[in-house]
Simulated assay, not measured.
Amino acid sequence: MPTTNDLLAIMARLRSRDGGCPWDLEQTFETIAPYTIEEAYEVADAIDRKDYAHLRDELGDLLLQVVFHARMAEEAGHFAFADVVDAICDKMLRRHPHVFGDARVDSAQAQTASWEALKAKERAAAGDADDSALAGVPRGMPEWQRALKLQQKAARVGFDWPDVGPVFDKLHEEIEEVRAEFAAGADPARLADEIGDVLFVCVNLARHAQVDVSQALRHANAKFERRFRRMESLAAQDGTRLAALGLDAQDAYWARAKAEER
């Protein structure tokens, strides 16, 4: 059975200047990074669909991304795959003293607090002077995810609504502010600011509901795509195309597609 060493050897061969793959040789950290993000989302999609055979394949694709970056780093003299493994093993041991040491934690919440405290110490030791409660939220994250992380960190120091009621109030307030901007002539900069506030509160609502924002949006996207494709199919059965119809007729097909799912 192939091992991780076999995968490393395959990657080294692909990147070889002596007969390697021209495409692989052209890649850089910057060009590969979007594929890394894409593969992570495909892993999440397979989990969401409970397609575990596909999950196996997608995890392999994600592992290849790690190997690809590590190979390029080794070629540049930065580090090798073994250093990546060593670093993550050291981090897991260091951040779980209740498992690999003498510390004790009584709950997952306590472990999260301990984890954050250890991360703060590591940042300070590395010379990071940012001691804000919001420190350590990567700017490369999707913005909805940054919103969630920022809210979670603020909540850990008590800056949070006690329940979902005020979140609904805030959401209504922000929606009314968007409505007011439209009524005032819909200045693009103001609209962007107010719609951003709506989205930020929506993330907060999902957090209070203990709903995964990404999963909820994936489900909404899948539902829309499924119903829209059914609309196209129903229209085709009637000998027409959606693009040739007015909105009222299209809405009728949407209602039919929706009704079929009940």
Rank of each mutant, 00 (worst) to 15 (best):
D131R: 02
V203I: 09
R230A: 11
R49T: 06
V157M: 04
F29V: 06
V137E: 10
A180E: 13
E225K: 00
V211Q: 02
A184S: 02
G165Y: 01
A135S: 13
D197Q: 03
L64Q: 13
V211P: 03
E122F: 09
R229I: 05
L7T: 14
A135Q: 09
C202V: 15
K258T: 01
D61H: 00
A155F: 12
A216R: 00
N204T: 14
V178P: 04
G60H: 09
K119Q: 13
V178E: 00
T36W: 13
Q250K: 14
L217Q: 01
R15V: 09
R17W: 11
R156C: 01
P2H: 04
Q237N: 12
D83R: 08
L25P: 05
A252S: 10
P166A: 04
T112P: 05
T36M: 11
A249K: 04
A44H: 05
D90C: 00
E26F: 11
E177N: 00
Y253V: 14
W161E: 14
R262Y: 11
E75C: 00
P142E: 01
F68E: 13
F159K: 02
A192T: 03
G19R: 02
A117C: 09
A126Q: 11
K170W: 08
L8E: 04
A33M: 14
A216H: 06
G20C: 07
A154P: 06
P142G: 06
I195S: 00
I32D: 05
A73N: 14
E261P: 04
A244I: 01
A46L: 02
Q215A: 02
E42I: 00
E232D: 08
E225N: 14
A209I: 08
T28Y: 10
E261A: 11
A9N: 00
P2A: 10
C202Q: 09
A186T: 07
A9D: 07
D61T: 06
N5G: 11
L191A: 07
H172E: 08
N204R: 02
G246V: 15
D18A: 14
M92H: 11
A154C: 01
D130F: 08
D160I: 08
H172D: 07
G77T: 06
V66A: 08
I88E: 12
K153F: 08
R230P: 08
L134V: 02
A257Y: 10
R139T: 13
D61M: 07
C202S: 14
G140R: 05
K149R: 15
A117M: 11
A126I: 13
L247N: 10
V137T: 10
R17E: 12
D128C: 02
M141Y: 07
A255T: 13
D212L: 01
L234M: 05
R15M: 11
D24V: 15
A108C: 04
C89Y: 12
D102M: 13
A33D: 12
V67Y: 02
G158Q: 12
K258P: 01
R71M: 03
K50P: 02
A33H: 11
Q151Y: 09
F81T: 03
G158D: 10
H208A: 03
A110M: 12
Y41E: 14
V137Y: 03
